[in-house]
Nucleic acid binder design. Sequence first.
RNA 1: UCCGGGAUCGUCCAAUGGCAGGACAACGGACUUUGAAUCCGUGAAUGGAGGUUCGAACCCUCCUCCCGGAACCA
Length: 568
Amino acid sequence: MSETPPSAPSGKPEDHAPNFVDELVQAEIDAGRTRLVTRFPPEPNGYLHIGHAKSIVTNFSLARKLPGAHCNLRFDDTNPAKEETEFVESIQEDVRWLGFDWGEHCYFASDYFQQLYDMAERLIREGKAYVDSQSLDDIREGRGSFHQPGTESPFRGRSVDENLDLFRRMRAGEFDEGAHVLRAKIDMASKDLKLRDPVMYRILKVAHHRTGTAWSIYPMYDWAHGQSDAIEGVTHSICTLEFQNHRGLYEWFHEQLGFQDPPRQIEFARLNLTYTVLSKRSLQKLVAAGHVSGWDDPRMPTVAGLRRRGVSPASIRAFCERIGVSKRDSFVDVTLLEHAIREDLNATSPRLMGVLRPLRVVIENYPEDAEETFELALNPGDDAAGSRAVPFCREVFVDREDFMEVPAPKFWRIFPGNEVRLRGACLLTVTRVIKDDAGEVTELRATWDPESRGGNAPDGRKVKGTVHWVSARHAVPAEVRLYDRLFTEENPLSDEERDLVEFLNPDSLEVLSGCMLEPAVREFGPLSRLQLERVGYFCVDAASEDGGLVLNRTIALKDSWAKVAAKR
RNA sequence: UCCGGGAUCGUCCAAUGGCAGGACAACGGACUUUGAAUCCGUGAAUGGAGGUUCGAACCCUCCUCCCGGAACCA
C-alpha cells in the first residue's frame, strides 16, 4: 500500500456557509459579472503552512463559483535575495497535495519584469514617477510620521529626461545599490503614508532564481503585485488584513495606468492557531536553531510537516472551510483542527493493532506450538475496507497501560482475576503476576476460554474491558514517535519579554522503541495512514524502510479514561 | 495623538430591522468486541451609554477596547 493519491475537493462550489467574500463576489455575479479570476501569490522564500492553506482554499474555491473562472498560482518573486527555486517546487508540491489544480495558470512576477519596467517609464514620462538619489535614511526621514506630513525630496523636481536617463542607467547596472531608487510622485502630505511617494524600484545586484543577472533593479511589492494582478486579468485580489493599508496605493497605480475592470483587493483575517506559531520568521527560527528536525518535522504547522505527520489533505480543507473567512482578528482553537483530522481519519483509516509498551502474557492453557489466525475487519465502520488476518499464539503482548495489579476505581481492563477480551480473539483472565527483583512487573500468566474464539463466550456472559494485543511470535518491532503540541502556551508570541523558545513543550516528541505491531503493518508503505486501535492514528514515516519501521503518531484517539484517571 | 480596520457563547462562524443559531471545546447520559466512533441532553454570548422604531446584534450619536500602518521586505 502506498500514499493515497490526492483526492479532489468535492465539486460543489460551496462546502461552507457563504462568507463575506463569497457574498460580495456573488453580488457582482448577480449584477452581471461574467469573468472571475483569483490568485494565490506566495513569495518563494519558505514553506507553505496551514495559514497559507486557508488562503489557498479560499481562492481556489471562490474560482468555482463561475464556469470558466480559475485561480492562478503566482510566485511574487521580486526579492532575489530571499527567493529560491527549491521553494517554488515545494510550494507547487504542497498546493497539489492539498488537492488544487492551477491548470495552465502558473505564473511568476519575474515574467513581467519587462512589462513592469515599461509601465514605470510611462509613469516617468507622465511626470508620475521620479528617480530619488537620497540615502535610505533621508528617504525614511522625509516620509514624516503619523502626525507629521512628509517633506519633498530635493530630487523630486527632476526633469522627465533626467529621470528617464537615470532610470535607464539604473537598469543598466551603472550605479551601486542604494545610490538611487525610483519613486512614484504622489503626495508627501497624504494621511495615507503609503501614498507618500512610495519606492517602486531599488537597485539590487543580486542574481534572481529565474532571471539570473539580467536585471540590476527589482520592483517593490506594491508596484509589482497590483500590476501583476492586472496583467493576469485577476478580478479579485484576496489578501490578509495587514495589506489594508496598501489598498489606496494598489488602486492609485491601476488608475494611473488606466486598466479597465481592474482587480479589486479584498482583505480577510489571517489564521492564528492556539499552541502554534504561523509566522515564517518564527518557523525559520525553530528550524535554524534545531528545535525541530526541519521544515517537514511532523510537529511543524507547515503543509510538509502535516503531511509527514499523517494529516490528510481532506481534513485540512474541511478545517479551512469550517473556520470561515472574516475580517475579525481571530485565534482558532487547535482542537478544531484536531477534530477535522480525527473526523477524516476515522472514516478512512484501516485499523491495526499495535502495542506501544509491551507486557508479555503467557496463556498457560494454550498449547505451546499451536497457533491460529483471526480475520478482523480493516474498518468496522466500512465493509468495503475488507479485512486482515491476525495471528494468535500462546504468548501475546498487551500494553502496560492496560494493566493494573491493583485496579483503580472504574478501571475495567486487565487485573488479576478480571476477565477481559483480547480484541477479535478471545476472553482471557490473568492468574499470576511475575515481577523481577526490583518489584517491576515483567510478565503475566493467564488462562483463556477456548470457547470464546472471536471474542464472545457461548454462554453470553459480558466482559466490560476489551484490549488490543499482538502475537509475540508474529510481532513486527517498530519505533513509534509520539508527537504532541509544540508549545505549552496558547499564544507563544504574546509575551514580548520572553522568547517563544521558552514556551516549547519539552514533551512534544517521545520516541518509543521496541513497540510491537501486528504483521499486517508490513503491507503499509511510507506515508500510509492507519489507526492503531484504542491508541491513535499513525502514519508510516516517509523515510521508513523495511527493517526499520517507524510510525509517527498523527493524533491520539480521544481518551475518556484518561480524564477519569486525571480527576482522581 | 493621525490614518485604515474590527468588536456576537471559552473558541471559530451565522443571524443583513422580526424567536440570537451551528461547529469545536466543556459537562451529563445512552450504546459499545476501540473507555474510539455514534446518539441524546445541559450550561454558555450581542463591549458601554444614549437615540430612531411597534420591534435593534443589525440603523444613528458618543464612548471604550483590540489589530494594522511611518522596509530600498512580501
